[in-house]
Structure formats: C-alpha cells, structure tokens
Simulated assay, not measured.
Amino acid sequence: MNTPVLEAIALTKVYRSAFALREFNMRIEEGDIYGFVGENGAGKSTLMKIIGGLVHPESGELRLFGQQGKQGLMEARKRIGFLIERPSLYPHMNAEENLKFYCHIFGIRDPERIGEVLHAVGLTEAASKKTSQYSLGMRQRLGLAIALLARPGFLVLDEPVNGLDPAGILEMRRILERLAREQGVTVLVSSHILGELQLLATKYGFIHQGRLIREISAGELLQTARSVITLSTPDPAAAAEKLRQHLQLHNISVSDAGIIEIPKEDMDLERLMSVLLQQGIRVDGFNLSAPNLENYYMDLIGGGNK
C-alpha cells in the first residue's frame, strides 16, 4: 500500500474553551483531489493551518508523506504548496518581481521556474503588470503560482475561488485539474461553492463541529446521494397532500420556493404520472435532480428536509 500524502490521527485543537478540532481523523492518498466540506467554523481552516505549521494541536498526530515529529514535518512541508486565505503580494511590484522575492525566500535558484509557474496559471501576458492592477481572480492565480514555485507534490488550498466571478472559478478549476492530471499533484481544497467542488474533487471529507464525519469518493457520492423528482404546480401544498394520500408516501415535501420534492428511490415514475393524471394535478415543470453535494452534506448533518 502506498504511503498516504496526509494522515491525521485523533487531532485535537482547542481555542480557549471551544474545540476547533476534536479527535479528528483524515487520510489523503497520492493523486486525490480531496474536497473538504464543512460550514463556517467547522474546523477546515484550523486543519490547514496545522498542516502548514501555523498552529499546533493539543494532542493527536499528523503525518505528511509518511513523516512525523517536528523535524520530519519540517522536511515534509518543503514538498507542500499553500494558498490559505488571501495571497500576500507586494502591490507596487509586478508578478515577476513578487515571484523573485518568493524564490529568494524558498531558496529556489532555477531561473526558468518563474516563467513556468506563470504559464501554468495563465499569467504570462500579465507578468510585467503591477499586482495593484490585478483583478481578484488574477491575484488568486498569482497566489497559486507562488504555491507552485517549489514543485510541490501536495497543494493545500483554503477557499481558492472565494470572491471570484464565474470565469475566474472556471479558470481556477481547469488549472487544478491540469496540475493533478499532468503533474500528479495531490490537492486538498476547501470551498463553500459546493456545486463547483463537485465538478473538481475525486474524494470528499465532511467535517462538522470539528470532527470528520464521513469520507466518500466521487463515485460513491453518485451512487448513494439521493436523486429527487421535482414538480412545479399552481397549488403545491394541495397537490403534495393528494400525492401523499394516493401514493401512500409521507416523505413528499414542498420547498421554500414552492417546489414539490419526491425522493426518486421511493417512486415509480409510471405510477406517479398515472396519479397526476387521475387527480387532475396540473404540472408546469418536471425535473429529476442529479445527486447534489450540498443536499448530501445537509442530510449528513441533519439539516436537510425530512
């Protein structure tokens, strides 16, 4: 069995009297694009700061590339690129000058490396432009370029698309997919934009109140997450009640937007259409929603519709 890139064993971190992480366990294998899912305050950023050595746990064990202990983790972190919160850039300097500064900090002497990372993140044409003139998306990409300077085998990215417009989000996803596919980079990425994370990740870890409550592959998500039949009708409350009576199903619900939701696994489509016709229920819209990461997470923590 290959050595995991990251292994967290019973990590606990306390701020004052509150647990940020509580007996936290995680395992990330080489080649994973690991989507880290959790509400604000669940402990995502705390874990990433522990990985980077910015904070230290009260107890538990962290292993990076199989190494542990103070000296081992220091060596392992040289193989990790970080983008945690906003990248630190000098606004009066251009992209090349910022990257030269970080090359000096990291001890990188390869003169071609700056051009390589600028190309990797699509900033070659903007290399001589001062970063004070960069858009938010360009600054995020330059932050990613800094994280790539030391040719990391593992990227740790905390909300890398936060605040980006749709084009910027798409560009960031393409860059990360290319890094994983062409260079074999393992990625740990958190994002509150779960629809976008679902397009990127190959594996998910769900954190709630400082604990990792489940790990699941993208394939398993598609198999286990619920699909929902949705109906739009002029009087959804009355229609839902008729459907409950004639289909003998109690888990038919009406969303806040007035859409009737029926779990697909409980429903035979032919029978549903027959009841709709027999009861004269007018249908203005009919859809089958795909398994949804947000719904899966909300169901997992008990926040979904019952």
Rank of each mutant, 00 (worst) to 15 (best):
S135T: 13
N25T: 13
G184I: 04
P234D: 00
A240F: 04
P291N: 12
I28F: 12
I84G: 09
L277I: 07
G60P: 02
A150S: 13
V156F: 06
P111F: 07
L11D: 01
E61S: 07
N162Y: 10
I80C: 13
L200A: 09
D165N: 05
H56S: 05
L200T: 03
A20V: 08
A120T: 11
Q71S: 06
G302Q: 04
D284T: 15
R173P: 04
H56R: 11
F154Q: 00
A240N: 05
I80H: 11
I213S: 00
L212T: 05
V161M: 13
V254E: 06
S274Q: 09
G143T: 02
L197F: 02
V5T: 09
D266W: 14
R226K: 14
R211M: 04
G205F: 03
V5D: 01
N25Y: 07
G195I: 08
N98E: 02
V189N: 01
V37W: 02
F19R: 10
I193M: 12
F24I: 13
G143Y: 00
R139D: 07
V254D: 00
I229N: 10
I262P: 01
V189C: 00
I50Q: 08
L288W: 13
A10S: 11
G53Y: 08
L157M: 08
H246I: 09
G303A: 07
G163W: 10
R173T: 14
P166V: 15
I281Y: 06
N94K: 12
Q223R: 14
Q71H: 12
F106R: 12
S190F: 01
S59I: 10
A127E: 12
A20R: 01
G210H: 02
A239G: 07
A150Y: 05
G210L: 15
L47C: 02
S132E: 08
L222M: 07
Q248P: 01
Q198F: 07
G168S: 15
I229Y: 13
L288E: 15
L136T: 12
S190I: 02
L157Q: 05
G43M: 08
G210Q: 04
S88V: 06
G115L: 05
G43V: 07
L6Q: 07
A225Y: 09
Y90T: 03
R77Y: 09
F206V: 05
E125S: 04
Y134C: 10
I80F: 13
I169R: 15
P87E: 04
S227W: 10
A147W: 00
A126V: 07
R139F: 02
E96M: 13
E7F: 08
A167Y: 02
E215Q: 01
N98T: 08
S128P: 06
E159A: 04
Q248R: 04
R139Q: 15
L142W: 01
L73W: 06
K264A: 15
I50M: 01
I259A: 03
F65C: 10
N305L: 15
S128C: 10
M48R: 13
A218Y: 05
E116R: 01
Q140F: 05
G304V: 12
L155S: 03
R173K: 10
